[in-house]
Structure formats: structure tokens, C-alpha cells
């Protein structure tokens, strides 16, 4: 760790010195990123294939891990380019790191803090979101947010997050996260909203809602048949709402069966 003691003077011209990674994480718009262990970056195996996207990968790794600093003698453009490439490389490594067990732990903390925001959907009751990319190749789509409750995709609220490349988080992250921490899968909410006029439901919307409820029921019966316990009020299950007749019926059936 002797290398870490070397200090890096950030380009932003601040007079205090800090590690490159800390500086990167602290800059505006990078709130979604977690810190990648320098050991992970230094392992060349983890960088396999990344030389396709950036040149001088060795130098960039040294910059990220504070082993060298961008020399002041170089022209302004070269320095800016090195800086950008270092950020880019770090972000690409980040996508790989967050699906390792250490990375998942760090992301868990960020998830718990709500660093990625909360689901805007009313019925999700502020479920924390997870960042996800639509492609693993950089430059395809910006980062999106996945809600594990409604299993849908949302745009980040703030424009400075909307410009982050989705490949910096990868397509597999939320799935890996929820498989690793199955107790974090929220209890799904089955409530749906139907617009009303003077208390009467709008017909076409209500019909669609009913059809969706039917689909939900079909799925529940499929799960039943497979003997999968999706018990209410447990992770991955469904919230039991007092008005929900489907669940009432289910309970009645259960009681009947046990009586027999």
C-alpha cells in the first residue's frame, strides 16, 4: 500500500490533496458509483478486453491507483484526455466490480442509504431503486433505475445522472444483487390505480386493470401448482391488502383444506 501514500493533485485545482478515486467519487454527478478496491483494478485479469475502449491502459491504471500523476509538463489537451480516459476506465471496471461479492456489499450500503433514489410510483411506497444499464457496451444508452417492487424501469430524476452511461453499471447488476440478497426483494404490491369520474371508474382503464389482475391471478396459480411459496408479507411475495378479495378467497380455501 506504499503507493497509496503518494498524493495526487486533482485537476480541479483544489489546494488539498486526495486519492484519485475519492476525488472521482466526490465529484458532482458521480453519486451512483461506489469505490472500487485498487487491488481489483491492479489485477490485469479484471481488465481483460477493456483495451478495446481505452489506450494506454497501464498508465491509466497507475493514475487511478495514484501511482503516477498526470505530469504538468504535458499539453492541456493530453492531460484532459488522460483524465477522461481514466474516468472512463474506472467506470468500466466499476461495472465488473459491482457484481463481485465485495462490490455487491458496497452497493448494498448505497441501496440502503437510498443513494440511487426511490421509486416514484405511489404504490411502490418509496422502494429504493437500483441502477441498471440497457447494454453492456458503452455509448448505447444512459443509466436507468430498476425498481425491485414493480419490476419496472425508470429514468433518473436528475439530469446529471441521466447522462451517465448505462454500461458503467451493466445489465446484470440488479439481478445479481437481488439473487445475492434475496431477503431484500420487496413484498410486491398488487394495488392498481383506476381513474374515476365522480366516483365511477373509467371503463376501458378498469377493464385493463381487471385483465391485469387476471394475469396476476394466473401467475399466482402457476406458482401454487409448482408448490412455490410466495407467502404474503415476505420477500418476493405479495402484500396482503384488506380489500383484496383474491387473498381472502385464498385464505378461505386454505382453511377449508386444513379442515378436511
Amino acid at each position: 500500500m506504499a503507493t497509496r501514500q503518494e498524493e495526487y493533485v486533482s485537476d480541479s485545482g483544489s489546494d488539498y490533496t486526495e486519492y484519485w478515486i475519492d476525488w472521482f467519487l466526490g465529484s458532482r454527478g458521480n453519486e451512483y458509483f461506489c469505490d472500487v478496491d485498487p487491488e481489483y483494478i491492479l489485477d490485469r485479469f479484471n481488465l481483460t478486453g477493456l483495451n478495446r475502449y481505452v489506450d494506454k491502459i497501464g498508465l491509466l491504471v497507475n493514475i487511478i491507483t495514484d501511482q503516477t500523476e498526470i505530469s504538468e509538463s504535458q499539453p492541456e489537451e493530453t492531460r484532459a484526455m488522460l483524465e477522461d480516459n481514466a474516468k472512463f476506465l474506472y467506470a468500466l471496471v466499476h461495472a465488473r466490480y459491482i457484481i463481485t461479492s465485495r462490490g455487491l456489499d458496497k452497493m448494498l450500503e448505497k441501496y440502503r442509504n437510498g443513494d440511487f433514489g426511490y421509486c416514484p410510483r405511489v404504490n411502490c411506497k418509496l422502494t429504493p431503486l437500483l441502477p441498471v444499464g440497457l447494454s453492456d457496451k458503452p455509448g448505447v444508452a444512459s443509466v436507468k433505475l430498476y425498481c425491485p417492487n414493480c419490476e419496472d424501469l425508470y429514468n433518473p430524476k436528475s439530469s446529471r445522472h441521466a447522462s451517465i452511461d448505462g454500461a458503467f453499471f451493466g445489465t446484470s447488476f440488479p439481478a445479481m444483487f437481488l439473487q445475492t440478497f434475496p431477503n431484500l426483494v420487496p413484498t410486491h404490491n398488487v394495488e392498481m390505480y383506476v381513474p374515476k369520474i365522480f366516483g365511477f371508474q373509467m371503463h376501458s382503464e378498469a377493464q385493463m386493470t381487471r385483465w391485469r389482475a387476471l394475469k396476476c391471478e394466473q401467475m399466482l396459480s402457476r406458482l401454487d401448482k409448482m408448490g412455490i411459496d410466495y407467502a404474503k408479507n415476505t420477500p418476493g411475495g405479495f402484500i396482503e391488502s384488506a380489500e383484496d378479495e383474491r387473498f381472502k378467497k385464498r385464505d378461505m380455501d386454505g382453511r377449508k383444506q386444513s379442515a378436511i
Binding site: P148, N149, C150, E151, D152, A175, L178, Q179, P182, V185, H188, M192, M208, W211, R212, A213, K215, C216, M219, R222, L223, M226, I228, Y230, P235, G236, F238
Partner: peptide, 18 residues
């Protein structure tokens, strides 16, 4: 992810269209 998996897709119906 199959709907059978814990954390699998169990809310597909929510946004489904016939």
C-alpha cells in the same frame, strides 16, 4: 429470470397489454 426464482419477474402483469 424466471418467475419461479426468488426475485424473479413476478410483476409482469402490471404493465402487460393484451
Amino acid at each position: 429470470l424466471n418467475e419461479r426464482a426468488p426475485g424473479g419477474s413476478r410483476m409482469k402483469w402490471l404493465r402487460q397489454h393484451p
